[in-house]
């Protein structure tokens, strides 16, 4: 318990002078703060352990080579080292592969524009408008179930509770709604594709 009263600066000094126990006290004292800080950014135990280890390897090397000159600010110094290593880690993992266009390789084979063309957008909009008109033609009870299921994304259990019918009735109404929609589409020969 006497370890608690020794300030960091003195432990660092003792360590530089060859007292190895001083390092273990410093690690014990600050491990959870430093590890917690790393883990809060990385969210992976193994990588956090690696970064914690690399941080202290730097600390040890710096102290042993007498390059440390920030007496009294041990923890912020170690935190800064770990912060830099975290940034390095993200740089390494987020690096994008680079492609260069050659005769055999076209850059457009890895790049594509998935958004709809103006024409397809108009078709999609038209199909939606047509479909809504067809739904309006359905009997009220079937229309209600279909709208709740498809547009409001409700489960059949929720629909049955809300409309005060059994789940089987709701399922049956959905089935009839779809059958009737198909009938109307066939009858008027409507094409609903995009």
């Amino acid at each position: 318990m006497a370890d608690l009263h020794i300030p960091d600066a003195l432990l660092v000094k003792n360590y530089i002078e060859g007292n190895e126990t001083a390092l273990s006290i410093l690690i014990k004292r600050h491990e959870s703060k430093i590890y917690g800080f790393i883990y809060s950014k990385i969210a992976d135990r193994d990588i956090s352990n690696d970064i914690f280890q690399d941080t202290f390897i730097k600390v040890i090397k710096t102290l042993k080579s007498n390059s440390y000159n920030e007496e009294g600010k041990f923890l912020p110094w170690v935190m800064r080292i770990s912060h830099n290593l975290i940034v390095d880690h993200f740089r390494k993992t987020k690096k994008m592969p680079m492609y260069r266009e050659t005769e055999e390789f076209s850059i457009f084979s890895v790049m594509s524009d998935d958004s709809l063309t103006i024409e397809s957008k108009m078709i999609v909009d038209q199909v939606e408008v047509d479909l809504k008109r067809l739904i309006e033609e359905l009997p009220e009870d079937q229309k209600e179930v279909l709208v709740m299921r498809m547009y409001q994304d409700m489960s059949f259990k929720e629909i049955s509770e809300l409309t005060d019918v059994s789940i089987n009735t709701a399922l049956g109404r959905m089935r009839y709604a779809l059958m009737n929609l198909r009938k109307i589409i066939d009858k008027h020969q409507i094409i609903l594709t995009n």
Binding site: E20, I27, E31, S32, N49, Q53, F56, I57, K61
Partner: peptide, 28 residues
């Protein structure tokens, strides 16, 4: 909760660091 106060590095990591420190000598 990510930043839990009880998080600690593995015992193996700490023991590696202490052994590494004992084994390392830097000569300038």
């Amino acid at each position: 909760e990510l930043a839990s106060k009880n998080l600690k590095p593995k015992k193996e990591v700490v023991s590696f660091l202490l052994n590494y420190s004992q084994a390392l000598t830097v000569v300038k």
